[in-house]
Write a protein that binds this DNA or RNA. Sequence first.
DNA 1: TTCAGTGCAAAGACTTTGCACTCAG
DNA 2: CTGAGTGCAAAGTCTTTGCACTGAA
Lengths: 140, 140
Amino acid sequence: MPEISEVLKKKGLKATPQRMAIYQALLSTDAHPGAEVIYEQLKMAYPTLSLNTVYTNLDILADVGLIRRIDSGEGLFRYDGNPSPHLHIICTDCRKVEDIYGDCSIDLADMTGKVEKWSGYKVNDHALYFFGQCPECLKR
Amino acid sequence: MPEISEVLKKKGLKATPQRMAIYQALLSTDAHPGAEVIYEQLKMAYPTLSLNTVYTNLDILADVGLIRRIDSGEGLFRYDGNPSPHLHIICTDCRKVEDIYGDCSIDLADMTGKVEKWSGYKVNDHALYFFGQCPECLKR
DNA sequence: TTCAGTGCAAAGACTTTGCACTCAG
DNA sequence: CTGAGTGCAAAGTCTTTGCACTGAA
């Protein structure tokens, strides 16, 4: 994975096999996995990988802005390979987390401006979660 | 606190002193405390109160919709005495959580409709967090 | 009276820390 | 080489569970 190692180096990070694998794993899924899931998934290919390393690298990757930490309210953190602020919808039955694309984000840019004026905060980021039941769970 | 015991009974909950105190504590602050903070605060007045009871009751109160569980991304849950969906702004420096009131929520009602159409979900709730630096932290 | 609620302790889940070893640059 | 990164183990933090006791209705 030549591109990935370049992206990491640009951020001043060493392109270790573990780090590349963790980042790659996030880029290649839209399932918003947690640390444990990524660890289990990579253990096959990297038997010596430690859970610690997964946590450490998820932190580092989120710090430099390559990935995004998601807090779905389950008491664990999930991660998203797409770091740009976007919307998530969470099924309260099966706990699935899905991305929402569309024209919604336009409204949010407006709102950020309003919020800055109102609160006096310097707003750097936002997170919008919708909670409900996914089509599959609704069928039951 | 006569009103509080009535509110609890209407929800089918026994109005125990501990439960009333926990609910009252949330109603009388806008600081969005976590379980531990509430526990420490009430221990003066209720020396035998157990942390377990605080957790149990926060869960119950959130279940019946009297309070709201907030996940500020710190790895702990905070609680809000105002259960109606409203916006929160979180200072990334001092970790303060504040409410945002204003005309923003109108846009969100629109957005919820869009999201339902787009995703096929039945949306029951949403949470919008803004992250930034509060006026006090900006001064430093 | 009677069961929901409480309190204590212990366990559980997720995450972080400490430290010696290793390998990418 | 050399410090950033890794792996193992242990500890930490927040939260939940088990179970006998208690008190609100």
